[in-house]
């Protein structure tokens, strides 16, 4: 059983839970950018947690199936169009053999997750089927005409995680909030920041009021995590996302909670973000 890629749209990659355990070799964690939507997609179709799915940025994906199966689309308000019929969001859908499935352009959100019951049988690289954006580790980006093998994973029943709430993004200050003036920390926790077009799955680059350092000098590079808000000397924050590098060279003022990092993954260029201490 397989899925054929008919069209990819702006960006489609395979993603799963990523490849932890290799950071000491310089391997980025990668994995789904919105982990919550990724988990919901797998739970809806009965896949074990961590099964690979297609991460589809700004819609445009069109695929066909050679056998009947169950699919689900999560993450944005993009419509899943099966044989010309729009399907309800965040729900499991049966498709018949030969069905053509399209992911429309979302009006809200950025990354949709298309799960197929059985998962994708492409080879793992260092224990993961995620395509890493900066190190290039993992399967090649799917292209029109590619055929991806599906399954065979046993179906499991697991609760579908809840949809995220609205509101400001929760952060925990640190590890380097002491590198910033008290005024900068206050500004960070009260001002509005705008997502710029230079953002991608490596990091969200934000524009907003400057966040001046309280120190001069350089911080030696150190390990960073998903959701870390790194502030270079120009004061413009970068929120690291799933494909972030292993280390960063600028102080991290705060780290988003995992749920906030998932919500940030859906922020489009031009969106306004606010942070609140968790």
């Amino acid at each position: 059983m397989s899925l054929r890629i008919l069209r990819t749209g702006p960006l489609v990659v395979l993603k799963d839970a990523g490849r932890p355990g290799h950071a000491h070799q310089g391997v980025p964690p990668s994995g789904a950018v919105d982990r919550g939507a990724f988990a919901r997609a797998n739970a809806l179709v009965g896949n074990p947690p961590g099964t690979a799915v297609l991460e589809c940025t700004l819609g445009g994906l069109r695929v066909s199936f050679d056998e009947p199966t169950t699919i689900a689309l999560t993450g944005t308000d993009a419509a899943l169009i099966v044989g010309g019929t729009p399907i309800a969001l965040e729900t499991a859908t049966e498709v018949h053999a030969g069905a053509t499935v399209t992911v429309s352009m979302p009006k809200r959100g950025l990354r949709s997750y298309l799960a197929v019951r059985g998962g994708f049988g492409v080879p793992e690289v260092l224990g993961s089927r995620s395509t890493d954006r900066i190190a290039g580790i993992g399967p090649a980006k799917p292209a029109a005409g590619d055929v991806l093998p599906i399954g065979p994973l046993e179906a499991v029943t697991s609760p579908v995680p809840a949809l995220p709430a609205d509101g400001p993004l929760e952060v925990d200050l640190g590890p380097r909030d002491d590198w910033f003036t008290a005024a900068a920390v206050k500004t960070f926790l009260s001002a509005a920041f705008t997502v710029t077009p230079a953002s991608d799955s490596v990091g969200l680059r934000l524009d907003g009021p400057a966040l001046p350092w309280a120190r001069t000098g350089e911080l030696p590079s150190e390990g960073v995590v998903r959701g870390a808000v790194q502030v270079p000397p120009d004061g413009k924050p970068i929120v690291f996302q799933a494909d972030h590098p292993v280390t960063g060279g600028y102080p991290v003022i705060a780290v988003l909670t995992p749920e906030a990092a998932d919500r940030a993954a859906q922020a489009r260029p031009g969106a306004t973000l606010r942070f609140v201490a968790g």
């Binding site: 932890p20 355990g21 290799h22 950071a23 000491h24 964690p29 030696p220 590079s221 150190e222 390990g223 960073v224 995590v225 292993v246 280390t247 995992p258």
Partner: peptide
Amino acid sequence: LYAAVRAAGLPGVVDLVPAARTVLIRLDP
């Protein structure tokens, strides 16, 4: 410290990133 944490095999520790003056310890919550 990196060698000691690695050798300890602490439950739930999934990744270690040693650097010039730090060790980042990633964990499974």
